[in-house]
Design a binder for these strands. Sequence first.
DNA 1: CGTCATTTTGAGGTATTTCAACGAAGGTGG
DNA 2: CCACCTTCGTTGAAATACCTCAAAATGACG
Lengths: 239, 239
Amino acid sequence: MTRRSPTDFPSLRAIPFIATKTGGGVTRLLTDRQRQELATLSTRMNVSSRGIVYRMGGPAASLFICADGAFKSYRDLPSGRRRVAAFLFADDLFGLAQAGKYVNTVQAIMPSTCYRIPMESLTAVLRHDAELEFHFLCKVTHELRESQRRSFIIGRRSAAGRIAMFLHMLENNNAPEVTPDVIPLPMSRSDIANYVGLSPEAMSRATGQLTRDGIIKFEGAHAVRILDRERYDRLANEF
Amino acid sequence: MTRRSPTDFPSLRAIPFIATKTGGGVTRLLTDRQRQELATLSTRMNVSSRGIVYRMGGPAASLFICADGAFKSYRDLPSGRRRVAAFLFADDLFGLAQAGKYVNTVQAIMPSTCYRIPMESLTAVLRHDAELEFHFLCKVTHELRESQRRSFIIGRRSAAGRIAMFLHMLENNNAPEVTPDVIPLPMSRSDIANYVGLSPEAMSRATGQLTRDGIIKFEGAHAVRILDRERYDRLANEF
DNA sequence: CGTCATTTTGAGGTATTTCAACGAAGGTGG
DNA sequence: CCACCTTCGTTGAAATACCTCAAAATGACG
């Protein structure tokens, strides 16, 4: 789960929305200068497991960049239900607010660290550093696509299909796996259920089905192994 | 549906993610200088109803800004189903690509116009105009939130609830209504169904129910009137 | 005014949700 | 180190809501 950048400075990572001439899906990284620029603005924060970074409705004073670990961004609904809007991993951005208020609550799902950047100073810097700002633009664009992908997941009928798609998304968006075919799952099952829009029971039944079919296999509570990649891919894409 | 800016130059509109001192939900607008800057880069395009702006998978050479009318961004799935990812109105941005390819197809749902901006020149300009770029950042952030809201809509169980939420979204995101309590619906019912993740039949039954309950009333094919705002709001928010 | 697409209506099938209860796991304190 | 407790995950059975298929009615457009 730890995929740190060379130095302990903030970094952003995103697929550029323009084609790069320097080869395929190359990721854009910040230059050292930019990382230091961000570092001077930011405070490194350690958050214990289940620690809350901010709550929905609170004044949005800062933007955050996940440095290490994982967070979930969620919202509790009047009905008592909870919707997870996103899972956040290293280099992900969070805290984008609406009219000065946070729209979601963000909580660490494991001991994590993040950078906290005061909005005021960040916008001031961005206003004169277009190059740095461009990275933020790429990053937010990336998160927009991610969010659209999530809509597709939720739109699926089949529970097993949603889960396959979710795993697919985790596999593609994060670091190349340490162990091939093994996907780390730092979050709880019910968090996943809340993310893909299923009840915990339906989630459980669907994973049970996938396991019985020999498509996946859980390795402990926080990892899945893909046993039958062909059927797994087909499930995730057939839609 | 026409909410043009004073001049015929491109404009962006978004709720700022920082609190404004100049009062509540004020929208950020481009300065005249910035609009002209964009105008020199862009080509104004008239698109007839059902005209395709670009297709998914095609090379993403340009970014677009909706000037007038309305578009839908959608994706046809292997299963033959279609998912509408977003409806785009005046000042909305579209054409953000992934690795140089468009991810959705965009089609006008009425005679519309948009600005076409070559990616290359846009990024070149953004790199030296941080202020302009900041507007794009706000805008993309705005669309990210919109997309998250859509996930919430799709996540709802009740068809009537999804529709209420959808109408709520249209009502809040677009221009103040010409006629109070009347929401224009430029898109077809099945487009809406594809957006909220329902079959056309379920959509029809749900709107029928809402109508029978005296909550809404269709005025022609392209407008709804809210008859019972209290129950309508409750439906959209109870979730 | 005719044709075609969209929308509506009907009946049956199927998936998930719900409610309830059991089992397992993790954390805490004695 | 063990016992307790709380949270999370699983399983079962019934209910609900949407989906599918098929066909009629409405509406749009040339």
